[in-house]
Write a protein that binds this DNA or RNA. Sequence first.
DNA 1: TCATCACATCGACAGATCTCGATGCTAGTG
DNA 2: CACTAGCATCGAGATCTGTCGATGTGATGA
Lengths: 125, 125
Amino acid sequence: MTEESDRGRDQVACSPCVTAAPLATEEAAALARGFHALGDPVRLRLLSMLAAAPGGEICVCEFVGPLGKSQGTISHHLKILSEARLVRGERRGKWVWYSLEPRRLEELQGSITSRLAEAETASSS
Amino acid sequence: MTEESDRGRDQVACSPCVTAAPLATEEAAALARGFHALGDPVRLRLLSMLAAAPGGEICVCEFVGPLGKSQGTISHHLKILSEARLVRGERRGKWVWYSLEPRRLEELQGSITSRLAEAETASSS
DNA sequence: TCATCACATCGACAGATCTCGATGCTAGTG
DNA sequence: CACTAGCATCGAGATCTGTCGATGTGATGA
């Protein structure tokens, strides 16, 4: 923890004024957890299947075949997506139906615009 | 490779028609590489520093202090971001200046909307 | 009650990732 | 030509991740 705030450094050799880190450590960690959940092809295909599902939801057994992974693996990825609050599961009888959490997706999408792509107009090389 | 297309399964127990996987394997892999690069707090803070930089660019030595990581580690993350085409480095004399690639950020941002959050209006629970 | 289905969890393994310190390489400097 | 500064790369160790098969759990049905 004592490593982040030592930016009152005396020697600035090659940059004029950029020393403050805009994204706080915790904020960056929270965003990173979200993007990390998106950083796997199986999970992306899983999400895309949910996005394209007519009723907006799919039960677990329907993922296993198309994605070509074992049932345990699918369950593992669904858990990761759940913990990242990107999907939500609901039990109905024997089955568990999963659906997207659009707000969380918007949240991550918005963070790209507001926190990362701000320099878009400035640099625009 | 023989695993993806066996969705002419005979027993559909719990879902009406969702069997096709909208995101192709290669497409998912390409997107996943991008999001994977965003899935680390150090890299997010790195990007945010670039976004907030007045000139839109920062030289490597200015990352080391504020982020509290070794120079080798910073260089490692910059390489990952470069390979994901999220940043670009340019050598000027002794220094290497990095800047964002706004198009790639827009690309990833757009992929959330178009490919993942389409069910936004449909489900909207 | 017992068997079965759908799903979650566990144990284990291979591979990837993050991190550091050390070394190499390139470009200025004396 | 040495010497130094800035950055990339390497080697190594600790941790995390994706995957599978096996097992556990909860609900349904005979």
